[in-house]
Computed example of a mutant assay.
Amino acid sequence: MYLKVRNLSSHYGSNLSLEGFSEIRSASIGDDSKELGSSFFGMISSLLFGFPVLAGLLAVFYSKVLSSRTLLVLNGMFIIGALSSFMTGGRFTAFTFLLMYLFARAIGPVKLKKKVKYLLMVAVSVFIIISSQIFLDRIGERDISQVAYLLKLCQPKPFAEKLLSINPNLVTLTIYFEYYVAHGVNQLDVLLSAPDPQNFPYWGAYQLKTFVIMFNKLGFDIINSTEITAEIINPGVYFTEIGAMYLDFGSFFSVIVTFIFGVLLGIVWKRYLVLKTLSDFFLSIIFLSLISVSSIVSLVGAGYFSAIIVSALFVIIFDLLYPLPVTE
């Protein structure tokens, strides 16, 4: 990591921009040999990246009974995990961390104090501002002539025209936001209109790519994400949760799997309301996070989400063997 930052620093000079940090991650993702050549222990470390999320949720769930020092350590682990992801370009990972923490606070056993609400509002605002700055770093300064054609894409138009009069980059930023929110449905239409890929369906290999890499290290021969992206139309875009399910399970079984997800959410949520266990709390947050952004992106398909699944399995197994205390 240090070498990567140093190399970028020499490339950008003394003024290392936010774009530079983002390029660390982009360069790693684009290196196909890295996927195939990384060590087995490297895969294991990737699958353990979800434990900072668990630390933050533990701090929320047991905030009534844990000492202030323990809460400080747990919250510190959560913040360090989110920041380390964010500073290496993983904005969506940091967004997921923040989203899950917000759901934890919303359904957790302790009502939010005004001070905590303000802190969360500040955290969300800072995240949006820095993400916007990363995007603006990438596109550079633009004048009116370069972005005027985008006005027809902005809604409402009077608002877009006002932004244009203030700063042309704000119009581009508005398009960026609208694109992230709405392009998943558009790309889903593109996906369903295109011919099916050669090895379709992928039976989980599209979304659970990190597990696929690990199993292939153990001697299995499962199609990997590099081979999948070479087959599908518009690789690198979001297809919504429905699109990801379609690629993995086809038309019929994607409906069945989605139905099973809904049933499991109902069971887990009912158990949490009655039993108040940590495992049900964690699983409820995972399902709520998946549903809240399902019209945009498949969180399951994000590489880091495999690590969150591993941490959830750890909690479930530990809770079965050594029942954790419940909270009221």
Rank of each mutant, 00 (worst) to 15 (best):
G42M: 07
F51D: 07
T96I: 13
R138M: 09
L98R: 12
T327M: 01
L47I: 11
V268T: 13
L112T: 03
I134T: 11
G90D: 03
G30M: 12
G76R: 13
K270N: 13
L18Y: 03
V257N: 09
I107D: 10
S131Y: 01
T226E: 06
K162T: 09
V257F: 14
S63N: 10
L57P: 10
V263L: 12
A230Y: 01
F249E: 05
G30L: 13
F95R: 07
S63Q: 12
K217A: 14
I291G: 04
S132T: 14
V212E: 01
F220K: 09
G219Y: 00
T174N: 08
S254P: 10
A82V: 07
V185Y: 06
K270C: 10
A27L: 07
N75A: 08
V315E: 09
I130Y: 02
L170Q: 13
A230C: 06
F103I: 14
V237E: 05
E35M: 13
P168A: 02
E141W: 09
S292A: 13
I233Y: 00
A160S: 15
F239L: 08
S9C: 06
A194T: 11
I285S: 05
S225G: 02
N216S: 04
V124N: 11
P109E: 04
S294V: 01
M77T: 01
G250N: 06
F21S: 12
D143Y: 00
L299C: 06
F253S: 12
N216V: 08
L3K: 12
S193P: 14
K111R: 09
S284N: 04
G262K: 02
F282N: 04
G50M: 10
A106V: 08
G42D: 05
K113R: 10
L47C: 12
D248R: 11
E161T: 13
I24Q: 05
L208R: 05
Q146E: 15
S284W: 00
F282R: 08
L273A: 13
A205F: 01
S22Y: 10
G76W: 03
E161N: 15
R105C: 15
L74K: 06
A160L: 15
Y322C: 01
T88C: 06
K114R: 14
M100H: 00
A104V: 09
L170H: 12
N169A: 04
S165F: 09
K217V: 15
S63Y: 02
E178M: 15
I233K: 02
T240S: 06
S165R: 14
L72S: 15
L247F: 00
A302H: 10
F21C: 11
L66V: 11
V263C: 08
I129E: 08
L278S: 02
Y272F: 12
S85D: 10
V310C: 12
V326Y: 00
I260F: 13
V185S: 12
V263S: 03
F61I: 01
Q155F: 15
I316G: 08
A205G: 03
V300S: 09
E161P: 14
K152A: 11
S294W: 00
K114L: 15
L136S: 12
S39P: 06
I285W: 00
A302K: 07
T240G: 06
N234H: 07
Y246S: 03
V116R: 05
D221F: 02
I175G: 07
S22V: 12
M87Y: 06
L163D: 00
Y118H: 07
L290N: 00
D189E: 15
V237P: 04
L324E: 07
